[in-house]
């Protein structure tokens, strides 16, 4: 079995993996590197639970051969989480009961992170459209939308 070495930046840190051809970024993160915040859901690009940021843009890691992110910057939920405490988005999800079983949460937060980086003052419709590719099957979308609105307020120093 041929193997290749792929180097990329994971959460700011140069990372090197040896992989089978076309191993997905999802598999590399979870099974090679042990970064399990990125979930393995449908593996069809349909559920959003494996969403990571590549150069700041949301992508589903289940459809991404890791060779395609060589030399690129990948951010996962682990990269967002500070050493002490929580990221404002995590805090907002926690306080707004936006997480129940938690399986969709990492993907939701990564998309929300990219959204707020692009647009610090998104309206409700914009939030809904941004999250349209992320499925939640238990909490319900309302608390998630409220959490993103709340996080936007926190990140904007209390202003909506």
């Amino acid at each position: 079995m041929p193997a290749t070495i792929v180097r990329f930046i994971l959460n700011g840190r140069p990372t090197e993996v040896m992989v089978r051809p076309m191993m997905t970024l999802q598999t590399v993160l979870r099974e090679v590197l042990g970064y399990t915040a990125t979930k393995a859901g449908c593996k069809q690009g349909g559920c959003g639970s494996c969403t990571v940021l590549v150069n700041g843009e949301p992508m589903v890691s289940c459809l991404l051969p890791v060779e395609d992110v060589a030399d690129q910057e990948v951010t996962t939920l682990e990269g967002l989480t500070p050493v002490e405490g929580l990221h404002p988005l995590q805090q907002a999800f926690f306080e707004n009961f936006a997480t129940q079983c938690g399986y969709c949460t990492p993907g939701m937060i990564m998309v929300a992170k990219a959204l707020l980086d692009h647009n610090p003052h998104p309206d409700r419709q914009t939030i809904i459209e941004a999250l349209a590719g992320n499925y939640c099957r238990c909490t319900g979308y309302e608390p998630i939308i409220r959490a993103v609105e709340d996080a936007a307020r926190r990140l904007n120093g209390g202003r909506p």
Partner: peptide
């Protein structure tokens, strides 16, 4: 067409 992540890919 599709969703944000899928449009990025």
């Amino acid at each position: 067409t599709a969703t944000w992540s899928i449009r990025n890919m």
